[in-house]
Design a protein around this nucleic acid. Structure first.
Lengths: 344, 344
DNA sequence: ATAAAAAATACAATCGGTTGTATTTTTTAA
DNA sequence: TTAAAAAATACAACCGATTGTATTTTTTAT
């Protein structure tokens, strides 16, 4: 239809024979503009095909209605659920999302942070990269009082809020469940313990053992990157044990490693759960497909994304002080499936 | 470290006793600025902690270095691969991504398009929603010569480019493969045929049947939303056939439906592939976990994302005319696994 | 009817770069 | 040595909305 020249508030002003100021305020429903005038302005704007110029607006008002998101990787079932939840909440709150991935590299994460900073995002949502050891690169945000929320993979910072699940508690529950099934030598497949998520899961595992008077054996903990290949390798590690010493259960810090470990063990003739019981973490779609179905922890990615954005938006709107709610812990739950049910 | 007042080009200008114009041009390596001056400017900028103000820049130059992405849903394995590829290419080309989901609703898609338009994205990447019947809401972009690229779920438009795979050809190959395995009554689980992807897959299926002198039977085509639940229901449909008429193969338009259909059939005592052979589409992670492993078509989501963004960026940089390359077809490949190997 | 208070509107500076054109400086050629 | 051409830099308007303050209009009270 129409095109050519862009309509500005000045065009509306001229059209109605009023000032640009009034138009500007009228369009935002400013109370000091007569309600009839506001109506006329809105009508004229519609007629003329006006659309607001975000830059001009942001340039002056210093707000962009944009949130930055930095994640290690976009392509995981968990992360895409998080993003879906974030997008949902952001759109409800009138924000847009700018998304970047660090690919697990600290320097990429720093670059991303800088870009987001220059784009003047109103707030930042971060799940930290594998390789990130310091979070100094977010100081530019803290210094400018731009709120930063860490989720999933978090770091402690006096000015940043965290959105997490109770990794410790969940891991404790999983381990206790395995113990209750009669398992005595429970192996743990873990991730990089520099990251809170994996450190906490390991802690929960250890504590559950201790509370049930089971010894902690270093040989029963294997840390790695939790990929398909690594899960397969972990199976080889398990098969090396002498019959007597072989673990009778595996608690993996994610479902991918658990599933590929199971596949390899099954191929080697191990019966699951009879010989070795299994439990994973995340409730990834593959956990419902593997046979036997994998016991796991439901990690509410969608809710986490929503919670993180909602909390950020509340803060930006001045509804809540971000320091008041420093940490949000979401409920996760143990999902028991056949892979861990020895007595059935 | 530093904070307080923002450094502008005027500060740099004053600092070096030159004009703001020179600073502006110098920062962009404009050829008409002496190279020594450029060095001095860059150095001063660094020292003073200057960061460019995107709005001021965009306001004048009318470019945002931002691309809009509208997808039906973020949380699918395929889409997250696409996004990862897009982000990768975008970051390489110096663009940011603004992402929104239509949740398969046409009106949400329209809203998103409008927001993107107001945010003045330099280009738009779209995979259409289920419910979208007209693509008029993108006319605002076409009118302003803002390039739009459709991917995966596309629509024909004289000014819009498409990035797709050869759905027809892939479906043809899958069907032919099943026929070559000796299957005679091949069922097709399909999606909404208003969408190119599903329409083309159905066409490929039909043509392969025709080319091999197999009759087309309407009762052997079931269209639905291809979810887990629907896949389970499809199994019930299949079980209703009389023994003689029961399909001996299933070609599903996605892996999710295929896998959940398989699970239900296996529970009912059907042997796969002996009784019924299976093939899916997408190469979803679950296809490698189900037993037997699912024959499928590898859908290169990551490459698709990269290709779409790269093509858009090239166009924006004036390297290529978008009308010159109207359609990009990516290579997909048939992955044969045990679920379809009857003779083994 | 008139002064004071409240409501509505307008003025004008501002945000921070960008860009067409003009001016100054340097280089080249005669 | 000087005029012409090329290179480098500066001027100043501009992009389009926002906002503190001033002005005008309307309402209220006396």
């Amino acid at each position: 239809m129409s095109e050519e020249k862009e309509i500005t508030i000045y065009d509306i002003a001229k059209h109605l024979n009023i000032s640009a100021t009034t138009v500007s305020r009228g369009l935002k429903d400013h109370p000091s503009i007569n309600i009839r005038t506001r109506k006329k302005i809105a009508e004229a704007a519609r007629q003329l095909g006006y659309r607001s110029n975000t830059f001009a607006s942001s340039l002056r008002s210093r707000r962009t209605q944009t949130l930055g998101v930095i994640v290690p990787r976009l392509n995981s079932s968990f992360m895409s659920a998080v993003l879906a939840g974030m997008e949902n909440a952001a759109s409800r709150e009138g924000y847009n999302l700018i998304i970047a991935q660090s690919l697990e590299q600290a320097n990429k994460e720093m670059e991303n942070a800088e870009t987001m900073f220059n784009k003047r995002v109103d707030g930042l949502l971060v799940s930290l990269a594998y390789g990130t050891e310091s979070i100094q690169h977010f100081d530019i945000f803290f210094n400018k009082k731009i709120p930063v929320i860490f989720f999933d993979r978090v770091a402690a910072h006096p000015d940043g809020a965290n959105v997490v699940i109770d990794n410790y508690g969940a891991a404790y529950q999983v381990t206790r469940h395995l113990i209750q099934q009669g398992c005595k030598r429970i192996m743990h497949l873990g991730g990089n313990t520099l990251l809170n998520v994996y450190a906490d899961r390991l802690r929960g595992y250890k504590q559950a053992l201790a509370d049930h008077k089971l010894p902690f054996d270093e040989k029963l903990v294997l840390n790695g990157n939790l990929t398909e290949e690594w899960g397969t390798e972990a199976a080889q590690y398990i098969l090396q044990f002498k019959a007597k010493e072989r673990p009778d259960a595996v608690f993996s810090a994610n479902d991918t490693a658990a599933v590929y470990c199971m596949i390899a063990l099954k191929a080697a003739g191990i019966k699951i759960p009879q010989d070795i019981a299994f439990a994973g973490f995340n409730n990834d779609p593959i956990s419902k497909v593997i046979e036997p179905n994998l016991t796991t922890v439901n990690y509410p990615g969608y809710s986490m994304g929503q919670a993180a954005v909602t909390s950020l938006a509340n803060h930006l709107n001045g509804n809540t002080d971000i320091n008041a709610t420093n940490t949000i812990v979401l409920r996760s739950e143990l999902i028991i499936r056949d892979s861990s049910l020895k007595n059935k």
